[in-house]
Simulated assay, not measured.
Amino acid sequence: MPDFVFLLIIIALVFVVFSFILSIIPLGLWISALAAGVNVRIITLIGMRLRRVPPAKIVNPLIKANKAGLDLSVDKLEGHYLAGGNVDRVVDALIAAQRANIPLGFERAAAIDLAGRDVLTAVQMSVNPKVIETPIVAAVAKDGIEVKAKAKVTVRANIDRLVGGAGEETIIARVGEGTVTSIGSAESHKAVLENPDSISKNVLNKGLDAGTAFEILSIDIADVDVGKNIGAMLQTDQAEADKRIAQAKAEERRAMAVAQEQEMRAKVQEMRAKVVEAEAEVPKAMAQALREGNLGVLDYQNLQNIIADTKMRDSIGKSDDLGKEKGDK
């Protein structure tokens, strides 16, 4: 019985030791690499474990690359992984590029991947171009009519300009700018509606893909609509502004006329006050003339008669004017 227990303990120890060795040395992965014709040393796999690099993420892409006929080394793949790259995606991109006869080396593919771009998608886009749909762009033709257009841009990835090249947002912005320029240079909105392809031709000839990561293959106008009559709206606004200016000037002239009228009334009041003041001086002057003997009693009586006659004539004239007014009514 003790021998049996001792045997079980030995078997358990052997199993533990063997499991520990397998956790450090990936024998299964090493055997798979040998079966695939990839020469990977055991010490290399152990070094990956010590550098905390999953051996499967290096060996499996290496096997795939070897079967596709690519000449890649373990050091390159491990270095790209340690730099933060996606080894499997880079290898898939290299295989796709080789099948499509696209010149793409490992260093450039790794640089594209580390730059944050999907290198596999870029290779696929080089083979199968992508269609980018722009938002609706509104512009005004020379006749003042607003035209709304939406374009579809067919682009192909440019592998050589993926690192440092502008993205889709730049393409959309440039196409929108070119569309606005083309519509704005049209003589009328009817010309745009009749020949929408003129917009795409003008925009395509501007070389809008310069400095971008794409190559523009074609620009097609998907939809063209007529918008508002901007010219008429601007003329209406201008007329309304002119009307307000004229009203302001008229109000200014009216205010000036009222001010002048008030000023004239003030002058008349002032003149009447002076007349009253002068009339008040007449009796004083007459009294002074009587005292000094310059004016006789008969002269004074004649003057009073003249004044009385003048008042009588004024009253008669006023009564005649009232009678005429009543007759007119």
Results as ranks from 00 to 15, higher is better:
residue 308 A to Y: 06
residue 179 T to Q: 12
residue 123 V to P: 01
residue 147 V to W: 00
residue 9 I to H: 04
residue 201 K to A: 08
residue 295 L to S: 03
residue 65 A to Q: 03
residue 36 A to R: 06
residue 297 V to H: 10
residue 192 V to A: 03
residue 105 G to M: 03
residue 105 G to Q: 04
residue 150 K to P: 02
residue 135 P to D: 14
residue 111 A to K: 09
residue 172 I to K: 03
residue 79 G to N: 14
residue 2 P to L: 07
residue 185 S to N: 12
residue 42 I to C: 10
residue 16 V to C: 07
residue 2 P to T: 10
residue 57 K to H: 12
residue 325 E to K: 14
residue 87 V to F: 03
residue 95 I to D: 04
residue 239 A to M: 11
residue 205 N to S: 13
residue 234 L to F: 04
residue 56 A to G: 09
residue 171 I to R: 00
residue 44 T to E: 10
residue 161 R to C: 05
residue 41 R to I: 01
residue 72 L to R: 02
residue 246 A to E: 15
residue 22 L to M: 10
residue 173 A to C: 07
residue 31 I to D: 05
residue 267 K to I: 12
residue 129 P to F: 10
residue 203 V to C: 04
residue 108 R to L: 13
residue 247 Q to C: 06
residue 87 V to Q: 02
residue 46 I to F: 05
residue 322 L to E: 14
residue 292 E to Y: 07
residue 102 I to N: 00
residue 305 N to G: 09
residue 161 R to M: 06
residue 268 V to W: 15
residue 49 R to P: 07
residue 77 L to H: 01
residue 44 T to W: 06
residue 137 V to P: 00
residue 156 R to A: 11
residue 87 V to S: 05
residue 21 I to W: 15
residue 224 V to W: 13
residue 195 N to W: 15
residue 77 L to W: 02
residue 298 L to G: 08
residue 143 D to P: 01
residue 258 V to K: 09
residue 13 L to Q: 07
residue 96 A to Y: 02
residue 81 Y to D: 01
residue 152 K to P: 00
residue 227 G to F: 07
residue 200 S to T: 04
residue 323 G to L: 14
residue 248 A to C: 02
